[in-house]
Write a protein that binds this DNA or RNA. Structure first.
Lengths: 258, 258
DNA sequence: AGGTGCCCTTGACTTACATCAAAGGTTTTT
DNA sequence: AAAAACCTTTGATGTAAGTCAAGGGCACCT
C-alpha cells in the first residue's frame, strides 16, 4: 500500500525519474511547484526572474550522505527540492542530538550564518535534491526586494519558534506526548505539501526519532506499540496510519480535545 | 559580598540611579557602552547617527512585569540596556517552559516575526530598561546598511544555534551536566560584559533554572549542593562562586578536560 | 535460496529523577 | 518588629524511562 507521500517520493526519486521530472528539475523558482513554500508570493514576472538568480546551482545528495557538516565553512543556504534531511549536533564523546527533520520546501543551513561555519550536520535520509542559494545572493536580493527580506526573516523566526516548542517537548512532556506531537507535526507538514493527513511513511529510524525527542529507541518503539494497541494508529515498521487523530491530539494536550 | 555583577546592577538599577546614569539612559546607540553587543561595528559618525534612528523609544520594565506576552502583536524587537529577562512558553494546562535568559546587550522578540504575533512571554527578572526597535526601522536600515543586515541575520542565527545546544542539553545530558553547562554559559556571558568570571548572583529561582534545564527545582537544588560539597562551587542562595571551573567543564563534558 | 546485517519489538530489571513532605532561610508586608 | 509569603534545602519514597538482552522481520547481497 502506497501513501501519497510514497507516490511523491517515487516520482521525485532520481533513480526512478521520468523525463517529465527531469524537466522539472531544471525549472527556476518561478516555475517551481514548491515556490510558495520557499519563496515569498505576489511578484510580477520581471521581479520573479530576478529572484530566480538567488539559486546558483542544484546539488543531488544520496541517501546517507552529508549536505554539510559541523565545521564546514558557510556560504549558502539550501532549499530542499526533493527528499528528506535530518540535522544533528554531537558532543565530543559521541552523543548525537537530532535537531530537526526537514522536507521539501524547507530551508537548511541557517545555523552557519552566525559564525560563517556550520555548527551541525545535515544528512540526507533519502536521495535528495537541493537548491543552492549563496547567502550573498540572498542578502543582495533581500536589500532590493523588501518582500524577500521579510520572507528570510520569517524563515529564521519560524525556526526559532519551532525550537521553542521542541524545548517545551523535551523539558515538560512525557514520552507518549512527545511522540504524539511528533506524528501530528509530521503529518501536518506533509498535508501542507498535498499528501495524506492520515498516512505516512517515516523516513527516519526509531533511533533518530528518539534522538529528536530525547528518548531511547526502545521507548519510541513501545510508544508506537501502545498507540497501535489502543487503536489510535496502525503501525507496520515505518508505515504509519493515523486512525484517530483526535485521540492523538488529546494525548499531546489533554485539555484541547473534548 | 558583592560580585561585579551586583555592582553593575546597583549602578544601573533605576531605583538607585544617580544623575550620571540618568544621563546615560538618554544616549543613543552611538554613545551606548553596549553598542558592540547590540550593533555592528566599524561605522563612521554619519552612518552611526542614522543607525541611532533604529531605536524609537525606551521602556522601563519593573521586576516581574511582562515586556510582551504570547499573542501580543509584534511590532518591535527589544535590546536590553539594563536588567535581566526570561522568555517562556506555556501549554494550555499550565506547564511552563523557560526558553531562555537574556541579559544586557541581547535582543528579544525575534519569535514574533514569523506570525506578526509573539509566541512567548518575556518577563523582567529585575527592573530593566529596553531599547524599543520598531522592526520596520530595522528592516529599512538593513536594506541601506549591509553590515546591519548581516548583523540582524547573525543575531537570529545565533539564537538558532543556542537553541540547538539547549536541545542537546535537554535530550542527552544528565542533571549535573545540564547545571554545569548552564553555570558556565552564564558566567561566560557575564564575563563578556566585564564582570567576574568566577562569581555571579543568579537573577532567577531554582524553579526557573529547572524549567530551562528540564528538571525539577529539587533536582536543581541537589545538584547545587553536590557541587558545593565537592568544592567545585560555593553556593549561598543565589550567590554562586565558581571555585574550580575546570571540574565544572569536566562535568559538562568529560572528554574535554585533562 | 540462503546468508548477512540492520532495524524493530518485547520482556526483565535498574536507575536517575520526580514526587511528597517537612523544616529552615530570606525577603516583603504591615 | 512581627507576620506572611516565598524560596531553598534535605530526606524518604515512587515511577517513567533507561539498560540489557533475546528474538523476529525485512532488505540487500552473493
Amino acid at each position: 500500500m502506497l501513501t501519497g507521500y510514497d507516490v511523491y517520493w517515487q516520482n521525485m526519486n532520481p533513480e526512478t525519474m521520468t523525463e517529465v521530472s527531469v524537466a522539472t528539475l531544471k525549472v527556476a523558482c518561478s516555475g517551481c511547484n514548491l515556490r510558495e513554500l520557499c519563496m515569498p508570493v505576489g511578484f510580477n514576472t520581471e521581479d520573479m526572474q530576478k529572484l530566480d538568480t538567488v539559486v546558483a546551482t542544484r546539488r543531488r545528495i544520496k541517501q546517507g550522505d552529508l549536505l554539510f557538516s559541523n565545521g564546514d565553512s558557510f556560504t549558502s543556504l539550501f532549499a530542499i527540492r526533493t527528499g528528506f534531511f535530518k540535522t544533528c549536533v554531537s558532543t565530543i564523546d559521541g552523543r548525537e542530538q537530532v535537531t530537526g527533520f526537514q522536507m521539501a520546501g524547507e530551508i537548511i543551513g541557517l545555523d552557519g550564518i552566525v559564525s560563517d561555519h556550520h555548527s551541525c550536520n545535515a544528512v540526507a535520509l533519502e536521495d535528495s535534491d537541493v537548491c543552492v542559494m549563496p547567502f550573498s545572493n540572498v542578502e543582495e536580493l533581500s536589500r532590493e526586494f523588501p518582500v524577500l527580506q521579510r520572507h528570510v526573516h520569517k524563515i529564521m523566526s519560524r525556526e526559532i519558534v519551532r525550537e521553542n516548542s521542541v524545548m517545551m517537548l523535551l523539558g515538560n512532556m512525557r514520552a507518549e506526548e512527545r511522540l504524539a506531537a511528533f506524528l501530528l507535526n509530521l503529518v501536518q507538514r506533509l498535508h501542507a505539501r498535498g499528501f495524506s493527513q492520515s498516512e505516512l511513511t517515516l523516513r527516519m529510524s526509531r533511533e533518530e526519532i528518539g534522538s529528536y525527542l530525547g528518548m531511547k529507541l526502545e521507548t519510541v518503539s513501545r510508544a508506537f506499540s501502545k498507540f497501535g494497541d489502543e487503536g489510535i494508529i496502525e503501525v507496520k515498521q515505518r508505515y504509519v496510519k493515523i486512525v484517530k487523530p483526535d485521540l492523538l491530539k488529546k494525548i499531546f494536550n489533554p485539555e484541547t480535545c473534548i
